[in-house]
């Protein structure tokens, strides 16, 4: 559940950002589409980082996340 949360959170964050971008710039629905995709990638990136497959952030001791 902990790991899937990371993925879902990435998608949700992308969706929220996309919704805001669309509202501010009037680019409906493209902002939502693009940022949802990016959110999807960010979600996968989150999962990889938590499970230790992806690189750590610079200057940060990652892998401490349970």
């Amino acid at each position: 559940m902990t790991i899937s949360t990371e993925f879902v959170a990435g998608v949700i964050a992308g969706g929220i950002l996309g919704w805001i971008v669309d509202h501010v710039f009037g680019t409906k629905p493209w902002g939502l589409i693009v940022l949802l995709m990016l959110g999807f990638v960010a979600g996968i990136y989150n999962v990889m980082r938590v499970s230790g497959f992806a690189g750590t952030r610079p200057g940060r001791g990652d892998g401490q996340e349970p």
Binding site: T5, A9, I12, A13, L17, L38, Y45
Partner: peptide, 10 residues
């Protein structure tokens, strides 16, 4: 940036 914003959400 999205990954950072997803932190409070997760």
């Amino acid at each position: 940036i999205i990954s950072f914003i997803s932190r409070p959400i997760s």
